[in-house]
Design a protein around this nucleic acid. Sequence first.
DNA 1: ACAAAAGTGTTTTTTATACACCCATGC
DNA 2: GCATGGGTGTATAAAAAACACTTTTGT
Lengths: 248, 248
Amino acid sequence: MSGRGTKKVADTLKKQALADFKVGVDNVIFSVDTEQNRLLVLLVMRDDEPYLGQWCLPGTLVRKGESLEDAADRILAEKIKVKNLYLEQLYTFGGPGRDPREAPDSFGVRYLAVSYFALVRFAEAELIADGVSGIAWYPIEQIPPLAFDHNQILEYGYRRLRNKLEYSPVAFDVLPEVFTLSDLYQFYTTVLGENFSDYSNFRARLLKLGFLCDTGIKVSRGAGRPASLYRFDAEAFAPLKDKPLVFI
Amino acid sequence: MSGRGTKKVADTLKKQALADFKVGVDNVIFSVDTEQNRLLVLLVMRDDEPYLGQWCLPGTLVRKGESLEDAADRILAEKIKVKNLYLEQLYTFGGPGRDPREAPDSFGVRYLAVSYFALVRFAEAELIADGVSGIAWYPIEQIPPLAFDHNQILEYGYRRLRNKLEYSPVAFDVLPEVFTLSDLYQFYTTVLGENFSDYSNFRARLLKLGFLCDTGIKVSRGAGRPASLYRFDAEAFAPLKDKPLVFI
DNA sequence: ACAAAAGTGTTTTTTATACACCCATGC
DNA sequence: GCATGGGTGTATAAAAAACACTTTTGT
């Protein structure tokens, strides 16, 4: 970033005035309920104007001395208790007029939103209801109209999630320590839809990559042959990092 | 301890104060000099503190009423005259302390940088020297230490450029209207290095995709067989959009 | 025995990769 | 003629996609 400093007063006056910003961080938090095959997004209900009573993405304004990612972590921690997660920055939305709190006539303080994308382990994620505002996991197909431009942000995050899944091992940040290959396939199916790949091809491809190791332990889930539990081997994966991997 | 004022103050004190931001936009502007096979980045010299006299990415602070992308366009237009370009947002850097202008002791105004990535047509790009500060195209391998965290931003942009090139038709935004397949190959080679693909395979793959149409016109450049001029057909490309394309 | 889930294998098609070679031009 | 860059084709290897089949469990 650069900008001119406060060189000369005359100079400064000739230039347009700089905008003053508050910076918000909004999180698109996904989790996958593999039991019920649902991709979920965390929404909270606004308990303040503007958009009072409307659902939105969990967000907060950045405090003094706080980094963007710290802010993202903070809201996340305020809303859910979770140990395993994947978090990355998504996109920054910053047009004037995107927040009604900006003075509509003149140009007051601007509100800029840096969005983050998170994936958390569904089973262990405990929602923290503060007793004031609502909080809920919404299935991706049933998202209501959200406050601000949050539908747009969510759409952006959803696209990122689907892409990430194809070339990056995010799923393992969010699956249990050990899992069956069906669990993994279920996970992918839930996010990407049924037609992304045939189970046996998916299986073969992933095993060939060599970073899934069979623990030898079998689990039986109702009828059918018991499945092997696998573990993600981060060290075996390391050399594949940054390679054009495809889990499809 | 009484009066409604007190309670409000107490409430406010319980919360952490929000940070106030100025928002900067920094552009990583690339161009490809196909004549000399060089990938270039636009740098400007700072004419003010901090980092006076040091090279940095062209940037500016966002003005009142101006969107982020408008600001990105504005600096770009201030530094080069160009008709064809590709521009997209890169990443937002916003930790406290990334700009020395922030008060080091207490927490004053924070400086946040939204970075943009641009690719412009080299041949038509005219640098605008304002007579005060330096401006130059730097080959990517010769980037000096830059002001702020700009080396990091540049690195980020370079990675994005290489990725984009593989699955998105950005090259055609920046090549001339008509070009030979060697021009195109040159372009890719310059950005990705020699070993990304064999020329004849590259050629076959791209032609099979069907969005390059042969104009029939031949050009001769020195010795050797004259080459056909091709044109990028945006309509033929449209259906391939969002598909997992690989130009490699 | 049989359905259900897990796991293996086989066949076909499509892509990637590495080359060898022909073509048209300037000198 | 021959060097130079443009353009085509082929042979091999690897990967993707489709799908048939076996194995092991619960009921």
